[in-house]
Amino acid sequence: MSDLAVTLRDLEKRFGDFVAVNRVSLDVKRGEIFGFLGPNGAGKSTTIRMLCGILQPTAGSGTVAGFDIVRQPEEIKKNIGYMSQKFSLYEDLTVEENIDFYSGIYRIPDAKKKDRKEWVIRMAGLTEHRASKTAILSGGWKQRLALGCAVLHEPPIIFLDEPTSGVDPISRRNFWDLIYHLAGGGVTVFVTTHYMDEAEYCDRLALIYRGELIALGTPAELKTRFMEEEIVEVRCSRPQDAMEIIEAIPGIGHAALFGRTLHVVAQRADESIPAIRESLAAGGFTVDGIERIVPSLEDVFVSLIEARDRETTPQQEFSR
């Protein structure tokens, strides 16, 4: 097996006329935490489902753990763990029964069964609830148990499809500690998310929008290389009213509220900063500070998507 855990070449999935995934190519290295980022409906889950053998691709190819996704799905299934946002546990079974069931399905040797079971229970923090029905567990517990069941057979690659949706922030944090722990043991993690803070935890990110790959790189690369414009943070009074005034200044893209501050997208920060200061002073705003900042992933994300929309919208309208 090469040092690539997952490869995709021009992978495509159509549902009728709708192109859910449009010729996506990328590689995931072994031991990497690879984030698949995009808004709802961008094609994240469809891609992951093709990689796991749930869906057949319409065109293109791919490999997982060195096996072809079209021809060798059964081999792939033995080498991956998969967990979706639904936390596919049997709610009418107890914690232990769920683990026993999955360890039987994965045919874990009897000698290891007990160890793996204890490992999952400890990892999920369910020692006191091992005989409880899964239905009564909180979202965070279910999520950790589902992850435990998905990695019972110690797969080299795990696919997590929005694993943290609907779970409180502390549980999310704990969950990511588990993912780091697994990755530290050499496991490749392929995870989809639409939470920006989670994206920051990944080694590398792919940004997918409307079925197309629009950016690929480490979080730091995305913030520096893919961002054509610069971000200026403005702290002033009445930020909501200030937005309109700032957006009217030439050379400025748009402004967005980030808490009590404004993030302004500018062609050139050094030219725009004096212009903003001037306009705000003229409008009677008190200005606490204006400075250029390193864009957050969210800034990058919004900027890339808007750039893509500007590119494609006129075409779409033309084709109508």
């Binding site: 796991c52 053998g53 299934k77 936390f87 596919s88 546990l89 049997y90 709610e91 399905i105 994965y106």
Partner: peptide, 13 residues
């Protein structure tokens, strides 16, 4: 309905 079918498909069963 509960999504375990999808999980089953991903296992070697």
């Amino acid at each position: 309905e509960i999504g375990t079918m999808e999980q089953m498909i991903v296992t070697p069963i």
